[in-house]
Write a protein that binds this DNA or RNA. Structure first.
Lengths: 187, 187
DNA sequence: GTCTATAAAAAGATAGAC
DNA sequence: GTCTATCTTTTTATAGAC
């Protein structure tokens, strides 16, 4: 990717987050870049191509992060803690691209299947870590699917809160999420 | 609302959930209703008007539910349990309209401010229940905002999982969510 | 209440000059 | 690499017949 392409991707992600993929026109995009719509086609063949770059980049960050976790060979609880950290890092470093993935993945055309494959594999790995934790008796025997979705729903939506809470320190956020999910909120 | 209007709203919510508000055209909508696009305008003045009806209806269900909770005058933990139940009920009974609220609220034009007012009030009430619980020592002194967003992120996204898990009994789901958030997952 | 026909605007994308 | 000009298609919405 050229630096101009990166610039277009960054600006697109920002606009896609604000208004959604379909509500952002090539003219909107061009205006933000201080060029004309036609000029964008010198860098990307279509609007869809820009969406694809954004979503697959983030999806692959999650895939790579999960592989690292699986290579650690530590306890299930320790692996879940690393995954919490992974989601915080991505939400902090790529909030606009992550938002685009979260809200506009269903507008992917040619790469939809590949994206769904990565997402399903990620979820399956996350699920297996929880299952293993229950087998080990590290984790209470609660329904695996309910644990999985409550954790993923929270982690996947972190980008909505992180920018609003500037004072929220990453390390503290991580520790608080661990407290909530691992230890519960009851005193 | 006439029965035809209800029919249009129901069908719209289904399509909006599948493809998103902006990706659904009046022709798509008409085709699903077995009529022509122009005929819809005999029942609603615009596509935007349909979105407004869907979103405000669900937002008001949450507002009414919260008012009932606030009138109970029980412990904070008990109030949180009723709120978990409220979200499950709405997700179960109105999955398509809830999905539309969740993903397309930002496409509201004239009623955006009113919607945001209801949402902010709901969040503020939810926050106050958690704060009170911490003051009472019912709840651990974790950051209020982190508890709030982890619970809301999970509850607001229930509609994504509930239809996939037909075997998932409502009462069991409620109990599992209570276990996770109130007691934690650690054994 | 639904239809056909059509207006009016907006959007993705291309051609070719500079 | 960006521009102007323009094509083509799509979309929301209206007018008026039935």
């Amino acid at each position: 990717m050229t630096s101009r392409q990166k610039e277009i991707v960054t600006t697109s992600a920002k606009l896609f987050k604000e208004k959604g993929y379909n509500a952002v026109t090539m003219r909107d995009l061009a205006t933000s870049l201080n060029i004309k719509a036609a000029s964008i086609y010198n860098h990307f063949s279509s609007k869809q191509e820009i969406l694809k770059v954004i979503i697959l980049h983030i999806a692959e960050l999650f895939t790579v992060g999960m592989q690292k976790v699986l290579n650690t060979n530590t306890s299930s609880i320790a692996q879940l803690k690393i995954l919490i950290e992974l989601h915080i890092d991505i939400a902090k470093n790529h909030p606009n691209m992550l938002a685009t993935l979260n809200t506009d993945w269903n507008h992917l055309e040619t790469s939809l299947e590949y994206y769904l494959k990565l997402r399903n594999e990620y979820e399956q790995n996350f699920r297996n870590i929880i299952k293993q934790g229950i087998l080990n008796k590290e984790i209470k025997p609660i329904d695996v699917e309910v644990i999985l979705f409550s954790m993923l729903a929270t982690l996947r939506n972190l980008y909505l809160w992180i920018p609003k809470k500037e004072q929220l320190n990453d390390q503290k956020l991580k520790l608080d999420l661990i407290k909530i999910f691992i230890d519960g909120i009851k005193n």
